[in-house]
């Protein structure tokens, strides 16, 4: 299954977009959020992210992806917070309370003098035993109305594996865009998709020569973009000789000014070293550990 371009890219979002992001795994959510935060901060906007993670953990996950969140948090440009006390009030959800929270954020942002606001909300709270979850479509409709004519964009983040299709369909209509990671290949054992922060590609599962074609496409697109490239293989359990060789060959053709980071577990790192990756100028093989 190749689904490149089926949805908007996270980097395409503009002011007053109310975007519906669907993701398949936590790593993908963090990657797409990091890109959303990065692009907001670099445009001088205020950025708010509500998620399941403790604020400190959310900040460190974004920092791990090369985003300068710590300084933004210190400067009041970035807020990472839990749902409770913001979107939710004591395990209860009401569209009125949630809209009140968003209006408050928008007003605060204006007072603080930021040219605009980016809000990302991980919606997985709605999978918890929270009362009032039936008001979710009302909230999404309220957000759509509140954003018209403003410099505010909201990114609602839905786990496509856990939300049922009926719920997703009921909220989709209130969004201006559907956003997902560009996916080059996906089946039961392998996923090849674009990574946005830091830019590159991500391989998860097991890859062999049968996936040479989508791997070549993913590498070619990553190379076509400017700058350094990360090949994130932290969730890759197997890679065969033909795919190792294809990745190493792709790095050889790059200009010397561009760096390539190959992130993987020790056994796969050893394979890349065996195939000469560490001897290619600008390439570093970085060993990741089980989290």
């Amino acid at each position: 299954m190749t689904t490149v371009g089926a949805d908007a890219q996270i980097t395409d979002l503009t002011v007053n977009d109310h975007a519906c992001l669907t993701f398949g795994e936590p790593e993908e959510l963090l990657d797409l959020t990091a890109a959303f935060v990065r692009d907001g901060l670099s445009s001088g906007l205020k950025v708010v992210w509500l998620s399941d993670a403790a604020p400190a953990q959310a900040v460190s996950e974004l920092a791990r992806r090369g985003i300068a969140v710590e300084s933004a948090v210190a400067a009041g440009q970035m807020t990472a917070a839990a749902w409770e006390g913001h979107l939710l009030s004591g395990q209860a959800f009401t569209a009125d309370h949630a809209m009140g929270w968003l209006s408050g954020e928008m007003a605060a942002c204006r007072q603080e003098g930021f040219p605009g606001l980016r809000v990302a909300v991980d919606m997985s709270w709605a999978l918890r035993p929270v009362t009032g979850v039936e008001q979710l479509p009302d909230f999404e409709e309220g957000v759509a109305a509140a954003l018209a004519g403003t410099k505010v964009s909201v990114l609602c983040q839905y786990d496509r594996e856990r939300f049922d299709p009926v719920t997703l369909a009921s909220v989709a209509a209130f969004h201006t865009r559907a956003v997902a990671a560009a996916t080059y290949y996906q089946d039961a054992v392998l996923r090849i998709c674009r990574q946005y922060a830091p830019p590159g590609i991500r391989l998860a599962g097991e890859i062999d020569f049968k996936a040479e074609e989508p791997l070549a496409l993913a590498l070619a697109e990553a190379i076509r973009l400017d700058g350094d490239i990360t090949v994130n293989m932290a969730d890759l359990a197997f890679i065969d000789a033909s795919c190792v060789r294809m990745i190493v060959d792709a790095t050889r053709g790059l200009a010397a000014s561009r760096r390539v980071v190959l992130q993987c577990h020790a056994p796969i790192a050893a394979r890349f070293v065996l195939f000469g990756a560490a001897d290619v100028l600008g390439v570093s093989v970085v060993t990741v550990h089980e989290r």
Binding site: F238, D240, A241, S242, P267
Partner: peptide
Amino acid sequence: QGRVGDLVAAVHELAA
């Protein structure tokens, strides 16, 4: 365990 990964890789290349 480390050698298991090597064995799997070797058998895969031969089967491929």
